[in-house]
């Protein structure tokens, strides 16, 4: 019965995939109509960056990115609300520890590079923040219980830094008569860089804290569940 249902679902979804493939093929066969690409590149000069994707993310559709940072923050608050973080992993051996000593600074350096290069080539705050988050995950896996994060109060400030700076810049622009997140032409580059720098740190800290998987501070509160069970067996 269960197997029949799975088979039926498979057939139906294969039909759906065939339909979608046909639609994609037909769409690609058409002459491309007017696209947002022309509009986006026409005023690229005024955005303060020369990478069109960064221009879309932080200038044309800056609202999206602000709310995206808010989503990231909301997810972390959800994780923190579920209780304290589980205990970390066992300390790594000398070979892995030496590797981590190299990889983590390199990841931070590469993150800084990606942040800067995002202005004119593929890169940007999210890529840089993802690298910082990866550095944090590596630290946690190698037996650093805090994953390189600071204490709880500093962590709370860092995770709201991204959305906070974004909103403060937007509000400041609104107050000085430009409209929310409408950058004045000459200062767009530096405002975007400011927002992106704050966002990079916030994304890195948020991703790492999400991987740690619980409220910081009270740390190893329920060490018991995992370990006592293995002892019993």
């Amino acid at each position: 019965m269960k197997r029949d249902l799975a088979l039926l679902l498979g057939i139906l979804l294969a039909l759906l995939a065939a339909l979608l493939l046909w639609a994609l093929h037909a769409t690609l066969a058409l002459e491309p109509g007017p696209r947002l690409a022309e509009l986006a590149s026409a005023r690229l000069e005024e955005t303060g960056v020369s990478n069109p994707v960064t221009a879309v993310l932080l200038n044309y559709r800056a609202y999206d990115t602000l709310l995206e940072l808010a989503v990231l923050l909301a997810a972390l608050l959800g994780i923190w609300s579920l209780g304290p973080a589980p205990a970390g992993y066992q300390r790594s051996g000398p070979a892995l520890a030496a590797l981590v000593d190299w990889i983590v600074p390199l990841a931070i350096l590469a993150g800084g590079y990606l942040l800067w290069v995002g202005g004119h080539a593929p890169g940007g705050a999210f890529q840089a923040g993802a690298l910082l988050g990866a550095a944090g995950v590596i630290l946690r896996l190698s037996g650093e219980p805090s994953a390189g994060l600071p204490g709880e109060p500093a962590q709370r400030w860092l995770v709201v830094l991204g959305a906070g700076v974004f909103a403060v810049v937007g509000g400041g622009l609104l107050a000085s008569g430009f409209g929310f997140l409408t950058y004045p032409p000459g200062q767009a580059k530096w405002l975007i860089l400011l927002i992106e720098s704050a966002a990079t740190v916030a994304i890195g800290v948020t991703l790492t804290a999400a991987y740690v998987g619980g409220r910081p501070g009270s740390g190893t509160a329920h060490n018991g569940t995992g370990q006592s069970r293995t002892v019993q067996r």
Binding site: E38, V53, V56, L57
Partner: peptide, 12 residues
């Protein structure tokens, strides 16, 4: 024409 940056940003 260059690739449309809007879908790229949406994917990000």
């Amino acid at each position: 024409a260059p690739p449309d940056p809007v879908p790229h940003a949406l994917v990000l």
